[in-house]
Design a protein around this nucleic acid. Structure first.
Lengths: 157, 157
DNA sequence: AGCACATCATTAGTGCGCCAAACGATTCGT
DNA sequence: ACGAATCGTTTGGCGCACTAATGATGTGCT
């Protein structure tokens, strides 16, 4: 956006404010990630992998919130870079078991570092209390809206 | 996102919180708009048009923050629906002068109504003070980050 | 044992918002 | 008059979220 005039009517709407700040955040994080040749999905997948250990693509999708359709490409990209390994599951031939390589773990460390830096850059103009406040408010919103659309299924009967 | 497990490490990061809530907001607003056959760019263009009156596509792009490349399609779509008119500028044959039709104005009213409803749905779990607080915090962030990239040009000398 | 059904991986394609490169046509500045 | 800037347009790309369809495989029920 290379606006020059920008005085508009929707400028004060929460949804707009949210979208714009999220945009900045997204750009910040995206740039951080791309500076080491990655993008959001890569981080999410690597982090999920480290947190839960090797798993099938479907399971990883559920845990990371990455759509199954996008998992394929994401795993491909990470596997191409040697950050992740795809091996057939001997006990279920439908599955691939994805696991983190040591290079992947190293990459994850880099991404986490960038990510932390970005948080700081993002919140730069806010005091610690304000940051706290913002996080709380956003969490509240998120919890509410996730309840309505996020995990509606009751655990298997 | 049809997550079922979703307990992750990045879940508390401001950039993530921001992105997710913005996502919900975006979906809410997008659904509201699409229920009357429109999308974000349509609203932005119509609103800009009403606020500043007829103008060339380039000027509208500057004011609405819509990229020139996307203006073309946006104007086409609105013109196809008869919400906007594209007429050559007699005094500058490079330009098209875009103007709002009365049908366009009516559509804008509808969109504004939806938009207002969405704000309420979005902020539902927040008290009036919290809404205020959130708006302030987001504005602060936005102002900061726009200062670095958004509207740097000083008004014509 | 057989069959319906669910799950897994994959491919292909949609939508929105943002952006960049290149082009011809026109107009402006000097 | 001529180079530079502006305008409209087309084409294409990225990131993220999502839908639909398909074939291979696995599970549960009867």
């Amino acid at each position: 956006m290379e606006t020059e005039e920008t005085p508009a009517r929707w400028e004060g709407l929460p949804s707009w404010l949210l979208g714009q700040t999220a945009n900045h955040a997204h750009r910040l994080v995206g740039d951080g990630f791309s500076s080491v040749g990655a993008r959001g999905y890569h981080y999410r997948l690597l982090a999920t992998l480290e947190e839960y250990g090797p798993a099938s693509q479907a399971a990883l999708g559920r845990r990371s919130g990455i759509h199954l359709s996008d998992m394929v490409a994401t795993v491909n990209e990470l596997a191409d870079r040697g950050l992740v390994e795809r091996a057939p599951d001997p006990s279920d031939r439908r599955r691939n078991i994805i696991s983190l390589t040591s290079a992947g773990k190293r990459q994850l460390r880099r991404l986490e570092k960038r990510l932390a830096e970005c948080q700081d850059e993002l919140l730069a103009p806010l005091s610690p209390e304000e940051r706290q406040r913002l996080t709380e408010l956003l969490s509240k919103l998120l919890t509410h809206h996730n309840g309505r659309t996020g995990t509606p299924e009751e655990p298997w009967s």
